[in-house]
C-alpha cells in the first residue's frame, strides 16, 4: 500500500530522492533539502496520498559516525488512504537548517521547536522558534551526542546562599 506513495514520489521528484528503503516494513525516503517544502505539500495535497496527520518529527545525531551529521526525520500518516511514510533529510553540522513545515501542518510547530531546542537544527520560516523544553539561557543542545549526559546548568541555589 505504502509502496505506491514512494513510487509517486519517485515519479515526481526523482532528482530530489537520495535513496529509499523499506526495512521492517517502514517505507522510507531520503530526500535532499532543496525542495523539501514542495515534496511535503505534494504529499499533503495529492488526493491519492493525502498525508493529513503529522505524526512525528525528530533528529538523529550521527556524531563522528556519518556525514552529514544530522538527519531530520519526518513521520506522516494519511487517515484517508491509511498510508504511512518516513522522510529523512540529511543536513550538515555547519549548515544545520531546514525549511519549516509549519505552514503545511501546524502540528509540527512544537516538534520543530523541540528539535531546535535539543539538537540545534534551525527551521527556517518557523514563526516562533525558541526553546521549549529547556529554558532561555541554557547553553548548548542536550541531545547532541557531544553534550555530556550530566552537565548541569542550575539556575537556582540553596536557600540562604547567594545566587
Amino acid at each position: 500500500m505504502s509502496k505506491k506513495c514512494v513510487e509517486r514520489l519517485q515519479a515526481h521528484f526523482a532528482d530530489q530522492i537520495l535513496s529509499t528503503h523499506d526495512a521492517a516494513g517502514d517505507e522510507t525516503v531520503v530526500l535532499k533539502r532543496d525542495k523539501l517544502l514542495d515534496v511535503l505539500k505534494f504529499l499533503r495535497d495529492e488526493a491519492d496520498l493525502a498525508f493529513n496527520l503529522p505524526v512525528d518529527l525528530t533528529v538523529v545525531d550521527w556524531y563522528r559516525i556519518r556525514e552529514p551529521r544530522f538527519e531530520v526525520v519526518y513521520h506522516l500518516y494519511s487517515y484517508r488512504t491509511k498510508q504511512r511514510i518516513r522522510l529523512k533529510v540529511p543536513v550538515d553540522e555547519d549548515d544545520a537548517r531546514v525549511p519549516s513545515s509549519y505552514s503545511i501542518w501546524p502540528g509540527f510547530d512544537w516538534y520543530e521547536r523541540e528539535a531546535y531546542d535539543l539538537y540545534g537544527v534551525v527551521f527556517d520560516g518557523h514563526p516562533n522558534l525558541k526553546r521549549i523544553l529547556m529554558w532561555e539561557g541554557f547553553e548548548g543542545h542536550p541531545l547532541r551526542k557531544d553534550y555530556p549526559i550530566n552537565k548541569r546548568q542550575p539556575i537556582t541555589t540553596l536557600l540562604g546562599e547567594k545566587s
Partner: peptide
Amino acid sequence: YDNYCTVQGIDTIIP
C-alpha cells in the same frame, strides 16, 4: 534521572 536536567534532590534547594 542522573542527567542534565534533573535536580539531584530538592535538599540542594530547600531544607
